[in-house]
């Protein structure tokens, strides 16, 4: 049991938890700034980004894909701002125009290109492939101390870990200005905090987290984790510090419980195969939010 767990389930669970937490952390601020749907928009435009990166480089490699996706996220944010300002259109509609158009362009280019030889399709973009990120070289818990085996870890794990650390470090470094500008932008500006730069920086950090997570777990988890854990946490407390901790707890719980339910749940029901882990993680995060909506101590506006 132990060796099989380490080989098949340990890395997907770790990657799932890291991806969930990396998205939930910036999600807290996006939620409080009424920009929750930025995460939705970003995860839609990631598709054209990686498709174009694939067209340019001709291969499915990590870094070109991440760069392409990040570039697409920046294009989307600029386009939303341009439509909002130049056309004087409300933010929701500007966002709707932008992400559907870019997503449609991605779908069209993808259909027009021959990607049958590589693993790049819309389904993969939506669901990810968390289950396939197994650790072949592991033979048991002892492999955690075996350098040769560690070298065989799926590359998604160290990448996701690095991105998570970056997100946490940035959060700690910019905690005070971020907190002040989130709650009172006018006051933040008067005491000399560059609120515009900070706002754009937040969106970029969110995009980086989304892109890194997207590659491993697909866009469903990304959208769900940007919104559900912070939203549930918001109903638990009035203090931002506690809200962050709650959201991390919820995100990690959803990742672990979702993975386990997807992998073993069907067996408990007497069925042979497993279901999508990404979808189940999103579902569990929704259940957590539903419970918080019903019993969360701070669920109502005062």
């Amino acid at each position: 049991m132990g060796s099989e767990f380490v080989q098949l389930s340990l890395t997907p669970i770790l990657i799932g938890v890291l991806a969930a937490v990396a998205c939930a952390l910036p999600g807290n601020f996006l939620l409080l700034r009424r920009q929750a749907l930025i995460g939705d928009a970003i995860s839609h435009v990631v598709l054209p980004g990686i498709v174009i990166a694939f067209l340019i480089t001709g291969m499915v490699a990590t870094w070109p894909m991440i760069l392409g996706a990040a570039g697409a996220a920046v294009v989307a944010v600029v386009m939303i701002e341009a439509i909002k300002r130049l056309g004087r259109i409300e933010p929701g509609a500007a966002m709707g125009v932008t992400f559907t158009t870019l997503f449609a362009a991605g779908v069209l280019i993808l259909e027009q290109t021959d990607t049958s030889s590589v693993h790049l399709d819309v389904q993969h973009a939506l669901y990810g492939n968390l289950e396939s990120l197994i650790w072949f070289d592991a033979v048991g818990w002892g492999s955690l101390f075996d350098l040769a085996a560690l070298a065989g870890l799926p590359t998604e794990l160290p990448r996701m870990a690095v991105v998570s650390v970056i997100v946490v470090v940035l959060l700690v470094l910019f905690w005070r200005p971020l907190k002040i500008s989130t709650f009172d932008e006018g006051y933040a500006a008067t005491i000399g905090i560059p609120v515009t730069v900070l706002g754009i920086g937040l969106v970029i950090v969110a995009a980086v987290a989304a892109v890194a997570a997207f590659d491993a777990v697909g866009s469903i988890i990304v959208i769900a984790m940007f919104i559900c854990p912070p939203a549930a946490a918001r109903l638990m407390t009035d203090r931002l510090e506690r809200q962050i901790w709650w959201s991390v707890l919820f995100a990690a719980t959803a990742a672990v419980a979702g993975y386990v339910l997807a992998g073993y749940g069907p067996q408990w029901l007497g069925r042979a195969d497993s279901v999508s882990a990404a979808g189940m993680i999103a579902t569990v995060s929704g259940l957590i939010l539903a419970v918080a909506c019903c019993v969360g101590p701070h669920r109502r506006a005062r």
Partner: peptide, 13 residues
């Protein structure tokens, strides 16, 4: 955002 991602995720399941 919560409804669309959770329902969609459940649909994928």
């Amino acid at each position: 955002g919560a409804v669309l991602s959770v329902f969609f995720g459940f649909g994928v399941v």
